[in-house]
Every structure is written in structure tokens, then in C-alpha cells.
Design a protein around this nucleic acid. Structure first.
Length: 198
DNA sequence: ACACCGATTATCT
DNA sequence: GATAATCGGTGTA
């Protein structure tokens, strides 16, 4: 079932990050369909979050995408070489976003391997925010796009029990001071992943 | 298993 | 000119 844009258009970005675990991310590039189940996310809570690019209301050419209405896509280049994929949430003018950090590949495994250069084992194909964008064919071309059924979209198919969704601190944001300790990272438990084939 | 470190460049100060 | 929401290779154990 296609996730409606209204799913992203409320103020609780942490809850959206939690609910995205178990949904699937889809791309269509030149007629080639790729998809994976979202198994790891992080919430970035706009102007009050020191880890967010929009902390303090900062609005630049890069971060202006974050101020779009929920359901748009924020892609940026990290460390000069990795494209990171986020979903903008909340109403227009409120720069909340959810970073997608890892997927379990489901559709287009062969093309994912080709995009990765056949370096990675199956379980590692979409593990990590830089790796999943490469495997899925996501680039700056997708920045500020709206999630639509023909290019880039999300679906909700299966519910996982709440106790299989684990919360913890976010990765790689030591510069954020005490905000680095907030439990804004969500991950599907290893047990749920192991039972995926049921 | 874990620590260390170089790659590479748009963005911001 | 410094920084960065990362990654994979290399080294040691």
C-alpha cells in the first residue's frame, strides 16, 4: 500500500522515524525497479536540534529543501562523496527530516550489486546511508522531489511488533553536544531480521 | 573484534 | 580555510 503524503505531514518527526521502520523504499530508474525494507532511521528535529542542518533556523541553498512540505526528499553530499537520503516531514516552513540509514534489499538485487560494483555481500548492499543511496541509484537529481508513485516512493506492507523496534543515539554527530544522546535512531531488531523469511 | 585513517568536495564562515 | 548525518582498507590482537 502506497504511503500517503499525509503520513509525513505532522509535527512528531521522532514518531514518523519510528513508524518508517518496516516500510519499504522504492526507486524506478530507466524502467528498473529497486526496493528494500527500511530497517534503520534517524529523526532530525529541525530548529531545536543541534544535529540538524537547520538548527537555529539556518536556511541556505542546501537546507532550503528541508523547509518544504512533508513528503519531499532531501538529498545532500556528505564528506564530499556520499549522497544521504532524507524524507522531509511536518508542514511547509518546519525543517524536520528523517534520515534513512539501512534497508533490507527486496527488489532488484542484481542491479544493486551492479551499482555497488559487486563489492558487497547481500546483507551489506544497503547497509549504511551512503551505501543504500548508491545501491538504489539515488543522487542529487532526486533532491527536493516529492515522493511519487512513478520515480521514488514508500509503501507500507507489513507490521512489526513494537518490541522489535529498538531506539538509541544517532551516529556520527558528536558535534551536537547533549543532543547527540537523544534516542532518535531506530533499528529493527536482529531477531526480526533473522525471521524475515517466515 | 576493534581502532585508526585517508578519500574527496560542496558548503559555510 | 575548515568542516562534514560515511566508508572501506589496513593494522594490531
Amino acid at each position: 500500500m502506497l504511503l500517503p503524503l499525509s503520513f509525513f505531514q505532522h509535527d512528531d518527526v521522532v514518531e514518523i522515524a519510528r513508524q518508517l521502520i518496516g516500510c519499504s523504499l522504492h526507486t524506478l530508474q530507466n524502467g528498473v525497479h529497486s526496493a528494500g525494507i527500511i530497517i534503520e532511521t534517524e529523526a532530525y528535529a529541525g530548529v531545536t536540534d543541534r544535529a540538524s542542518h537547520a538548527y537555529g533556523g539556518r536556511k541556505t541553498d542546501r537546507t532550503s529543501t528541508m523547509y518544504l512540505q512533508g513528503g519531499h526528499v532531501y538529498v545532500y553530499l556528505c564528506y564530499g562523496m556520499h549522497h544521504l537520503f532524507n524524507i522531509v516531514t511536518a508542514d511547509e516552513g518546519i525543517p524536520h527530516a528523517v534520515l534513512i540509514r539501512s534497508l533490507l534489499p527486496t527488489v532488484g538485487v542484481e542491479v544493486m550489486k551492479a551499482r555497488r560494483g559487486s563489492r558487497a555481500a547481500f546483507a551489506k548492499l544497503c547497509e549504511g546511508p551512503g551505501n543504500l543511496t548508491k545501491a538504489m541509484g539515488i543522487s542529487m537529481w532526486h533532491n527536493s522531489m516529492k515522493l511519487t508513485e512513478d520515480i521514488l516512493w514508500l509503501e507500507h506492507d507489513k507490521d512489526y511488533p513494537q518490541h522489535h523496534i529498538l531506539a538509541g543515539p544517532r551516529i556520527g554527530i558528536d558535534y551536537a553536544g547533549t543532543d547527540a544522546l537523544l534516542p532518535y535512531r531506530f533499528r529493527l531488531s536482529d531477531e526480526a531480521l533473522a525471521n524475515q523469511h517466515d
